[in-house]
Amino acid sequence: MTREKQLGSQVRSLLSNLSEHGTQHLTEVETDLMQTSFLLGEAIEKLGASFMAIHEAVSAQQASIGLLLSGAQPTPELAEQLEARHEDIARHVNAAVTGLQFQDLTNQLLGRTLRRVTGLRTVLDVIGSGSADISEKNVEEIVKTLISINEALEEQSVKLESALWKAVCQTGMESGDIELF
């Protein structure tokens, strides 16, 4: 293969690797951000509904207590109402506690996104520093430099991918499965 063809081949590899790895990492970033957005949206919706429901149940409970304070007799119906309100409040608080866990899930997704973006910057730095004095080299040296950059690019990309296990697959805020062994 002539030097010119070798050079062309290495330039093509560099551009194609850069495009492939860059697209792959950015697609993952896009997916994680979309998942974060879904989780945040659903969490806010559920939390809003829980807080409104808690407010309604507490208001109803307060009305029953108000009746007792104004001298009404503590009838079995009133006792049942108070018990039911108490259960309502507990149920809505449980739902709110489930919804509040969005921070743990989204924090993991955002951490993964941040590590991917930082890793991608490292990949681009490798290319930048490797090509800094390329204009002063002859064709043979340029080919060697490009081979070295291509290898470093591949290595950085593999290193980045292996450090980014996806631990959060949840796309909603409903409570997860339980399995006893």
Binding site: N94, V97, T98, G99, Q101, F102, D104, L105, Q108, A167, V168, C169, Q170, M173, E174, S175, G176, D177, I178, E179, L180, F181
Partner: peptide, 25 residues
């Protein structure tokens, strides 16, 4: 947050008695 069968198997092998997936109720 992990919910794959592979991770559950690893947990079981390590000595876990159960697996609860977040978020919890």
């Amino acid at each position: 947050t992990e919910s794959s069968d592979e991770m559950k198997s690893k947990g079981r092998a390590a000595g876990a008695n159960g697996w609860l997936v977040k978020p919890f109720d």
